[in-house]
Write a protein that binds this DNA or RNA. Structure first.
Lengths: 193, 193
DNA sequence: GACATTATTGAATATATAGTCAATAATTAT
DNA sequence: ATAATTATTGACTATATATTCAATAATGTC
């Protein structure tokens, strides 16, 4: 009954997301997005409405992927603590990777939180969800005696998450692997035994 | 022998720095800088040459102020550990302050490290200097027996600095004071006894 | 095959933005 | 005073950027 779309919305979103992730909202212009998505302006605007809306959709896409990815790491072993360790090591390996652009949520928090309440709230939603997931897994760890009972899962989760954000910042400084390993080992050591 | 400047370079730099600090390089336009500095385009360009150069000068200004400020905190008590604690508490209080824009070095690392090697190197220079200052103070702490001999000052300094950067990110999320306090207390606890 | 509907194309547009410049003004030296 | 030098002013410019739109194309329905 009408001409069908030639593009796949998820694919386009993913391509736009990669550009925004690498260069931020203000550091990205529509020409880059038009090239990356291989859509013409009309199609891109037809699909998303504006640069703002496209950014928002890309951020959402990243947030959802991020939640899934963290969830899969947090349950990659039967042992909660072993899973958390694996997640931290995964982040550490991303941080040493020159081609990685850190965490899009963290980047966006820094670029746009002070300017857009709507963006800030969305970023917070995802970051808090990750915090809750980690806290839940730390409760599991306490339940099976992998961490001591005097540790507050919520507080420890906040601390670990905070240090992971610090690692994301560190990733922008071309850090030596030794430094990244030293930091992540200290973080892992907090978990115990 | 010539018309004297009506502005004070340091003052202008400080005003420009505040704008870039709050809204980043790409999030700031020349009109904002012209308003904030109360210089006309000609004067501003006469003084700094370009938006790029002005940003670089503002970043440098921040870096130098930052070094001085951290140095003064690290030696605000005779006790090295007590001084480090005071610094962490200072950062924590900035993080809970709604009007604070985090650390300009951290913000710039995230916005521009992937785009300009020159900027990345300058940011790294300042961040590394702060790391060395902290490591030196941790050596002092070890010397006077405030921290145990099996702790590596350099590694611990990296870890503390990393978590402070994470606190800067946290500051963009309108965090509860309770969360900031919980995290900074855990960080402080690492130093202790 | 004509029609209705939606997608695609890419040139065009309005605005924002970084940067320039000629005229003018303030100072010091002679 | 006059000249030499540098600072200030703010209108102007060239370019970049987000966005629009009229023409065209592809589908399903009658």
């Amino acid at each position: 009954m009408a001409r069908p779309k030639e593009y796949d919305r998820e694919t386009v979103l993913s391509e736009a997301m990669n550009v925004f992730w690498a260069t931020g909202y203000f550091g990205t212009n529509m020409n880059q997005l038009i090239k990356a998505t291989r859509l013409n302006p009309g199609s891109l605007y037809g699909a998303f409405g504006s640069k703002d809306a496209l950014f928002f959709a890309a951020l959402d896409h990243y947030g959802k992927m991020s939640i899934e990815s963290v969830q899969s790491m947090l349950y990659c072993h039967d042992s909660p603590v072993e899973s958390i360790r694996a997640w931290i090591r995964m982040v550490a390996s991303e941080v040493t990777d020159k081609d990685n652009h850190g965490c899009f949520l963290v980047n966006t928090a820094i670029e746009l939180s002070g300017r857009s309440h709507e963006i800030q709230e969305r970023v917070n939603t995802y970051l808090e969800e990750i915090g809750r997931m980690l806290a839940t897994r730390l409760e599991d760890a306490r339940g099976v005696g992998e961490i001591s009972n005097d540790k507050d899962p919520e507080a420890v989760a906040s601390f670990i998450l905070c240090t992971i954000w610090g690692l994301r910042v560190l990733g922008e400084t071309s850090p030596s692997e030794a430094k990244v390993v030293a930091i992540s080992n200290q973080l892992i050591a907090l978990l115990g035994k």
